[in-house]
């Protein structure tokens, strides 16, 4: 377990693809450290041999046949695109 400093916040923010202004890094480091400190209370409990629980009711999710069930919303969905060209989502150039 550890605490956060500005460098670590900067690195995590890059992984999460969020710009954090340099002047705000210490503030984030402080609040994230406080949250990690709270989370550290988990260490007080020995969980050796306990199976992690992913589903709250501890049941398996059902399987269904591999058939298309979704309606085709693509035309409606494209209407919300910030930039569109020839029905393709447009982003800044990636390859020079």
């Amino acid at each position: 377990m550890s605490t956060m400093d500005s460098d670590k916040v900067n690195n995590i923010a890059h992984l999460a693809r969020i710009n954090i202004d340099a002047t705000k890094l210490p503030e984030y480091a402080n609040s994230l450290s406080n949250i990690l400190h709270l989370v550290q209370q988990m260490d007080s409990l020995d969980t050796e041999g306990v199976t992690p629980m992913a589903h709250p009711l501890d049941v398996m999710q059902p399987l269904r046949s591999d058939a298309i069930t979704e309606k085709d919303f693509s035309a409606a969905l494209r209407k919300f695109a910030p930039r569109l060209e020839a029905d393709l989502f447009l982003v800044p150039q990636v390859i020079e």
Partner: peptide, 13 residues
């Protein structure tokens, strides 16, 4: 963090 939390989640249930 994550696996530890999921283990305690089971104990809480």
């Amino acid at each position: 963090y994550y696996i530890k939390a999921q283990k305690i989640r089971r104990l809480i249930r």
